[in-house]
Design a protein around this nucleic acid. Structure first.
Length: 267
DNA sequence: AGTACCACCTGACGGC
DNA sequence: TGCCGTCAGGTGGTAC
């Protein structure tokens, strides 16, 4: 479930491995992840190029090529990156493989084909076309509160709405609401100033902690503080705060996990 | 503007 | 054993 912290880790991984290396070829394992481009177009555009720097906005990872164009990577639900030397280490579900002049390879892996890789000219236009909201970690408190002022509906829906805020999905929104002690269905318009500030603080704390503890790699739940909901995010588990039973409900078409005692419904 | 629902996709899992 | 429905969840489209 690559959300903002996971994609941030992928960004750092790409920065540490694949930057400034000449691309000699690409191998398209599944054209389904290429929407607006084709394997042939992509191969032609990338051959001889290198990625020079990266940018993350929400769940999107953008890589600037040395000719001014940009590669866009979105990971859907199951996407990740793997840098490796020996082709026998090529992961299953490798959908797009970059081959570099140094003999190494970078695989864009995705079991379910819900992600997307593309080639664009202008990152600003790309983000605007998708009507993405500001990145959740790049947003200061004043701007967060300002956006919240015009918002109605369930607080969990707001956190997950990429047009409102970019980067938060189902899993981290549960954690943020748990830490802020807010019921997922609390109407935004019923939150007072103190609650909105708490929500902002919880959002930053959760996203930063997940980044610091190495999101995007297996076993994150074991590395998070035991007081977090994520290690206990399953039906029937005990709330790490009050010992009550973690419950689920349906919100914005997703399954939300929460503690009914710590996160009472506020109306 | 916000919500509900569907589709996309693949693998895991429980029921029978 | 093996078939089948359901679920996982990010996104985008549609209808209301």
């Amino acid at each position: 479930m690559p959300e903002l912290p996971d994609v941030e880790i992928y960004k750092r991984y790409l920065d540490a491995t694949a930057l400034h290396k000449t691309i000699t070829a690409i191998e398209v394992g599944s054209a389904a992840i290429l929407r607006a481009t084709s394997g042939r177009m992509l191969a032609q555009a990338l051959r001889g190029r290198s990625m020079e720097r990266t940018w993350r906005h929400g769940k999107h990872l953008l890589a600037a090529l040395d000719d001014g164009r940009w590669l866009t990577l979105h990971f859907g639900m199951t996407g990740r990156l793997k840098y490796f030397k020996d082709l026998k280490d090529d992961p299953a579900y490798d959908r797009l493989r970059f081959d570099f002049a140094n003999g190494y390879h970078l695989a864009y892996e995705s079991r379910r084909l819900l992600g997307e890789v593309g080639l664009i000219e202008d990152p600003g236009a790309f983000l605007a076309a998708r009507r993405l909201g500001p990145d959740a970690m790049a947003l200061d408190r004043a701007r967060f509160l300002e956006r919240m002022r015009g918002r109605r509906g369930q607080v969990k829906s707001a956190l997950m709405d990429q047009h409102f805020l970019a980067g938060i999905g189902n899993v981290y929104s549960d954690e943020i609401l748990f830490r802020a002690r807010l019921h997922p269905k609390t109407p935004v318009q019923h939150l007072d100033d103190a609650q909105r500030s708490d929500l902002y603080r919880a959002m930053r704390e959760v996203l930063q902690t997940a980044i610091d503890r190495g999101a995007g790699r297996d076993g994150l739940a074991d590395r998070l503080p035991p007081s977090y909901l994520l290690p206990h995010r399953e039906r029937g588990a005990a709330c790490p705060r009050c010992g009550g039973e973690i419950r689920t409900l349906s919100c914005a078409g997703r399954t939300a996990y929460y503690c009914p005692r710590c996160q009472p419904i506020a109306t």
